[in-house]
Write a protein that binds this DNA or RNA. Structure first.
Ligand SMILES: Nc1ncnc2c1ncn2[C@@H]1O[C@H](COP(=O)(O)OP(=O)(O)OP(=O)(O)O)[C@@H](O)[C@H]1O
Length: 712
DNA sequence: CGAGGACACCTTTTT
DNA sequence: GGTGTCCTCG
């Protein structure tokens, strides 16, 4: 117990030792909020509270894992529930499926599945996907769900034409999910919140089970999540939340700083603790961060000091374009490596994922090891989704989205026309799709070959279904091999897909050994809820690349933030109003405050975006930043106007690009006079970028276009 | 039936 | 640069 409290400041200790009643910890970055949550759990256990009566909610699975690891290091008994809101919801909804009016084997739909379900819903309503784009519809519905608005409630509200349609779409979409025995991410939260609201007996029981509830990163909870936290603690009010309003970056998915106000209103007796010492960053980094966040009008000022020693000034670097920026980032990393930092201590952040590509290329070129912190991406790959779709069908035969995916993957002679006929028939006759498949023999519209193929598939699936209580790996391997997927991937040109499936199989081995009661349905639900940050491996010995959003909660001695430009941060699509811009500013704030020692921001004067190169403007956020110094002259390669494309592995054989130097006056047959901006040597596509006098900048393929060099 | 090509459309951030 | 959709051809 002493040991626990020893490592805390007075303020932290006050928060940790506060046992009963609501507690609100509001504090700036690096002040130890997460530590308070972890130590508070430890303290409660040390005080004799049974571990399984404690529930701690984290923002990512990775954070949960980390917290569990720390508690274990303190040699405390295990058994506390530490997970994300989504994981908790999935678990409780499974446990209390009947009361929630669900079947236990529900599938959790990811974004791609949701899109398909939405398209099906729109088709059923005979709505044109042009006027009602699926993605946008899903965003609206997601917002409603996060606010706990059901289709019925929505219908009560006065609606214009589009609004009225939205009610219908919301209903139809839910009907699709229901038919598939599926829940989307928001459903998980909403169903649990509603269950806690309506089923008072269960609520009491869960209040009993979770005597103490703690929520980290509270500033990014949405209404629905708050209702869950509140519902779980209604009887005892032992709810402790920590957060930083300046780090709220998920407003776009319903997170509401208003929840902090709600917490105070709902718990007027709540104790409040402020933590004012930052244990992470140098004063230089903190000053910079403060000079940025000060510009937000809608905010309460907070004190934050550090006793860390003064360090290097944060730097700002300007580059000609994104390639130069990526190269500069690689140089910066090498420089820090020389100064003695390890690769794993460095991170590169960007606003949008698309910026990572050029960075990866540069790092590869410089042989710098890196890891992409993007856990979800893996599970979105075609070959992975294929394998998982088979497993999903085994667990939840109603999942037609998955069934449609696998019915002819690999191709087994059940073509699109057949599939459509089968599903249409099931729809129109009101018969279960499996019944239709079983009776396909008798359907006149189905070709003879297709009939046998359907029969074979159904038999195969049945043969697997009796085996679903085996370890997950075994089922996975069996399905992968017997379905023909393995053969299909083996025949492909690229070996990556097969290797990816192998990785999936390995992760299943890991799952089977890690979990007490491994089960296929549980495995699938776990996988559906991975977060991007989960891919972060602190031991990897590699530089970490991730979005600013993913960086939340992490810390690195060396941090680089690239693309600090108008349109990127603040993002063009988040610049509608001051509120959005303030969130963008917070996002940059989060990025900056991840840095412990060294920080470098950069921007490129030109950036190629969807194929066209455009001049950029540096971010307005850079204005009024204090204590940022220009990075000293960037060492360009001697031939800095020569970029090397990927396909060029050996020496330069192409004659053309090299003969063009920057600033050379040229004439193009169609676009007229212009000047070379950049020359790109490449085996297959030697090209130059020309800024034409008539306006505009174009990339000219030297293979196809004749450029005439002119003397001045 | 199915493979492959042409074309449009969208890519901000994520559980 | 990816993906869904429509078309053609074998
Ligand atoms: N009392 C303390 N003594 C020494 N180090 C501490 C103390 N409290 C926190 N730290 C360290 O400070 C760093 C930041 O702590 P933590 O991640 O808990 O802060 P946070 O407030 O959750 O940060 P953020 O909100 O920026 O994610 C961690 O490395 C942590 O170990």
């Amino acid at each position: 117990m002493e040991e626990i409290l020893e490592k805390l400041t007075d303020a932290q200790r006050r928060a940790v030792t506060h046992i009963d009643g609501p507690l609100l910890v509001l504090a700036g970055p690096g002040s130890g909020k997460t530590r308070v949550i972890t130590y508070r759990v430890a303290y409660l256990i040390a005080k004799g509270i049974p571990p399984n009566r404690i529930l701690a909610i984290t923002f990512t699975n990775k954070a949960a894992e980390e917290m569990r690891r720390r508690l274990e290091a303190m040699h405390l008994p295990r058994g506390s529930t530490i997970c994300t809101f989504h994981r908790l919801a999935a678990r409780l909804l499974r446990e209390y499926a009947e009361r929630a009016d669900l079947s236990k084997n529900f599938t959790i739909y990811d974004e791609a599945d949701q899109l398909i379900a939405m398209r099906d819903a729109l088709k059923a309503l005979e709505l044109d996907s042009k006027n009602f784009p699926s993605g946008k519809m899903l965003t609206h519905i997601s917002n409603y769900k996060n606010d706990l608005v059901t289709p019925e409630q929505l219908a009560q509200l006065p609606q214009d034409f589009v609004g009225g349609k939205l009610v219908e779409i919301y209903r139809a979409y839910q009907k699709q999910l229901e038919k598939n025995n599926a829940l989307d991410f928001d459903d998980l939260l909403m169903r649990l919140a509603l269950l806690l609201r309506d089923d008072t007996e269960l609520r009491d029981r869960l209040n009993e089970r979770y005597q103490y509830v703690l929520v980290d990163e509270y500033q990014d909870t949405n209404h629905c999540q708050y209702q869950i936290a509140r519902g779980l603690t209604l009887n005892h009010n032992n709810l402790c939340v920590t957060g930083d309003p300046d780090q709220s970056i998920y407003g776009w998915r319903g997170a509401d700083i208003g929840n902090i106000l709600a917490f105070e209103e709902d718990n007027p007796e709540a104790a409040g603790v402020h933590l004012e010492e930052n244990f992470r960053s140098t004063p230089e980094v903190l000053n910079l961060a403060d000079s940025l966040i000060r510009h937000n009008v809608q905010r309460k000022e907070k004190q934050l000091f550090t006793s860390k020693l003064s360090g290097a000034m944060p730097e700002l670097a300007e580059y000609e374009d994104e390639r130069a920026e990526a190269h500069g980032a690689a140089q910066y990393i090498k420089e820090k490596r020389h100064e003695g930092f390890e690769y794993r201590q460095m991170a590169l952040f960007y606003r949008v994922n698309s910026l990572s590509r050029v960075l990866e290329e540069a790092l590869r070129r410089e042989r710098i090891p890196y890891q992409m912190v993007r856990g979800v991406e893996f599970y979105q790959r075609r070959e992975i989704k294929d394998v998982l779709a088979y497993l999903r069908v085994l667990v939840n035969p109603s999942d037609r989205v998955s069934l449609k995916r696998i019915i002819n993957t690999p191709a087994r002679g059940i073509g699109n026309a057949t599939v459509k006929r089968l599903f249409d028939y099931s729809e129109n006759a009101g018969k279960d799709i499996w019944q239709v498949l079983a009776e396909a023999d008798r359907l006149e519209t189905i070709g003879a070959a297709a009939k046998t193929n359907v029969k074979k598939l159904v038999q195969m699936i049945h043969s697997w279904q009796v085996n679903t209580d085996k370890p997950v790996v075994e089922i996975m391997k069996m399905v992968y091999e017997q379905s023909g997927l393995k053969a299909m991937l083996a025949a492909e040109k690229s070996e990556d897909p097969a290797a990816n499936v192998q990785e999936l199989i390995n992760s299943a081995v890991d799952y089977d050994s890690r979990i007490e009661k491994p089960a296929l349905d549980d495995y699938l639900q776990q996988i559906a809820l991975v977060s991007d940050a989960d891919a972060y491996d602190e031991q990897a010995g590699a530089v970490s690349l991730m979005t600013l959003h993913t960086a939340k909660g992490l810390e690195f001695p060396v941090v680089l933030i690239v693309g600090v430009e108008e349109g990127l941060i603040p993002h063009a699509r988040s610049a509608e109003n001051e509120k959005e811009i303030e969130e963008e500013r917070r996002l940059l704030f989060v990025g900056i405050t991840r840095a412990q020692k060294k920080l470098c921001l950069s921007y490129a004067s030109n950036r190629t975006f969807r194929g066209t190169r455009q001049a950029t403007i540096r971010s307005t956020f850079l204005r009024g930043l204090e204590g940022l110094v220009f990075r000293r002259e960037i060492e360009y390669e001697p031939d800095h106007n020569l970029n090397v494309a990927d396909d060029l592995e050996t020496g330069l054989t192409g004659n053309e690009p090299l003969s063009f130097i920057r600033g050379q006056l040229v004439r193009h047959s169609k676009f007229g006079l212009g000047r070379i901006q950049e020359a790109i040597a490449s085996r297959d596509h030697p090209r130059v970028v020309v800024r034409f006098n008539a306006g505009g900048q174009k990339t000219i393929e030297l293979k196809y276009a004749k450029l005439e060099k002119l003397d001045e």
